[in-house]
Design a protein around this nucleic acid. Structure first.
Length: 504
RNA sequence: GCCGCAUUCGUCUAGUGGUCCAGGACAUCUGCCUCUCACGCAGAAGAUCAUCAGUUCGACUCUGAUAUGCGGUACCA
């Protein structure tokens, strides 16, 4: 039985790269008929941000990434929040201590900092490892007796992993193959902090084991510490049930190089967070995909394809299709640059899949916000006609406003180009035609285009666009006759009269 | 600095030794449609497969160096 987890730490809003990690875990779990677990890794109380956990849950829910077990829904392997599991980790640290896989260290943070400075001055980097631990204050250099004495005296300490001296550790990665590192170059990571909390490394391995996780799908930033994790499974004697690893490539910023950051989003005009986020400390607001009007299906589809492909030319895929087609071996190895253009294309595609009723409902919201009422049939007619030229709900009012309010001003450039001095004569003729011929497409078209414009050798573009300026305010929009038919005879005449008055 | 990962059109990518003088998508450009703007449709342009060396009858595909980018190097995750 496949069991995967998404294990964010609640230090702020979930980054779009984190969302992709969650998505890949979800797709894999669903496809394999396995379970998807949400575990909150809040072992660092200093970085805890109120509201972040709720944000993560809400964001993934909005995108349709569902969990089978987790901090918000419970499950047989709970609790799912590491701070609620605090009491559990100590015994595992003790086991490692007892088996000689770990040791106590008493070095104060200031002392370590000083040591790092000292090395830095010599252009070297200090590493707490097999070469330096004998010079530090720990139970290996001091002896167990002295260490115990200090502990009994209440001196703060941490527990560090004791890396063996010169062994090659190979991590098998589902995406990259075998990655080998030598233990001599790895440092003795802190497993248990002086505040009584485990670090990520310990808590992660213990929880993944206890929760019977079979596959760890996480960001590439974890690859360097994967050998430590493999060693921990070995030290605990859990190697036979160790999960398989897949380290995902990073999401990069659209221009230049480097990891996608919040700053890039603000600068280039796209969100890096799924939902809008209000920072509780600074009060700063960061935009979200949802608030900008992106459809969750579009975000999911776009994210899925950023670093993965189905092996065919198909690009538009629903969540169900993604689940069916997902394959870890088709995840690419290199980082992917986020593209706003591609995101917009997906959004446009999914917006077109919305029904006329759905678009009408969105349009009604915009209309009501401006204190205008419109009946449902009319809204739906406009929605059906205008949908194809819209990508975001926020464009709705801008592109459809003239269906609800007469233009208050006329685009200067368009007027200069189309509204010739004699135009009031032709516009008056339009009014006459509307007043005399049946109010239907073919009749108006025939009377205006054939019997008047063509018969009098008038410039079709000038007359029709002037009419458009009168009705819309500028030379954009759908078929002119259809537009008149939609807006209505009286309203059209009123607008043309006003334009004659104002422009002639 | 050290360790690790990566490197195919502007971007996302296909490609698992001959079928590739490299395919698709987005973006760009052109044409069609047309009263306009979009949409749509059709087409074009765009990659010495980072560089160098090797293995091989043959390399984008395998190996090694170099370069570049990224990640890690915390009592953060």
């Amino acid at each position: 039985m496949v069991r995967v987890r998404f294990a964010p730490s609640p230090t702020g809003p979930l980054h779009i790269g984190g969302v992709r990690t969650a998505l890949y875990n979800y797709l894999f779990a669903r496809q394999q008929g396995g379970k998807m677990i949400l575990r909150i890794e809040d072992t660092d109380q200093t970085r805890f941000v109120p509201g972040a956990e709720q944000y993560i849950i809400e964001a993934l829910d909005w995108l349709g990434i569902q969990f089978d077990e987790g901090v918000h829904i419970g499950g047989p392997f709970g609790p799912y929040r590491q701070s609620d599991r605090k009491a559990l980790y100590r015994q595992y640290a003790d086991q490692l201590l007892a088996d000689g896989w770990a040791y106590y260290a008493f070095d104060r943070p200031e002392a370590l900092e000083a040591k790092r400075k000292e090395y830095e001055a010599q252009k070297k980097t200090f590493q707490y490892d097999c070469n330096t631990r004998s010079q530090m204050e720990n139970s290996l250099s001091l002896g167990m007796e002295e260490a115990q004495r200090r502990i009994d005296a209440g001196e703060p300490y941490v527990v560090r992993f004791r890396f063996p001296e010169n062994i090659d550790i190979t991590v098998h990665d589902l995406i990259r193959g075998d990655v080998t590192m030598n233990s001599r170059l790895l440092d003795d990571k802190v497993l248990f902090k002086s505040d009584g909390m485990p670090t990520y490394h310990l808590a992660n391995i213990v929880d993944d084991h206890l929760m019977e996780i079979t596959h760890v799908i996480r960001g590439e930033e974890w690859l360097p510490s994967a050998p430590l994790h493999v060693m921990l499974y070995r030290a605990f004697g859990w190697e036979s049930t160790m999960p398989q690893f897949a380290h995902l490539p990073l999401l990069l910023k659209p221009e230049g190089n480097g990891k996608l950051s919040k700053r890039d989003g603000d600068r280039l005009g796209f969100p890096v967070f799924p939902l809008e986020w209000h920072d509780p400390k600074s009060g700063e607001v960061s935009s979200g995909y949802r608030e900008q009007g992106y459809l969750p299906q579009a975000v999911v589809n776009m994210l899925a394809l950023l670093g993965w492909h189905p092996g065919t030319d198909q690009e538009l895929m629903s969540m169900d299709e993604l689940i069916r087609l997902f394959d870890i071996s088709h995840i690419s190895k290199n980082g992917a640059k986020f593209s706003l253009d591609k995101a917009k294309w997906f959004q446009h595609e999914y917006f077109q899949q919305l029904s006329d009723e759905q678009v009408a409902a969105l349009l009604e919201k915009e209309v009501l916000e401006r204190g205008i009422t419109a009946n449902h049939d009319y809204l739906q007619r406009v929605a059906a006609m205008m949908k194809e030229r819209i990508t975001f709900p926020s464009e709705l009012w801008d592109t459809c406003s003239y269906f609800f309010v007469a233009p208050t001003e006329y685009n200067e450039k368009d007027v200069a180009k189309r509204w010739t001095p004699d135009m009031h004569i032709h516009m008056q003729k339009v009014i006459d035609i509307l007043n005399t011929v049946p109010f239907e497409h073919d009749a108006i078209h025939h009377a205006l285009l054939d019997e008047y414009i063509a018969a009098n050798s008038l410039n079709t573009g000038k007359v029709m666009n002037s009419l458009r300026i009168a009705v819309v305010g500028r030379t954009v929009g759908p078929d002119m006759i259809t537009l008149i038919l939609t807006i209505g005879k009286q309203e059209t005449i009123r607008r043309v009269e006003r334009a004659i008055e104002k422009l002639s």
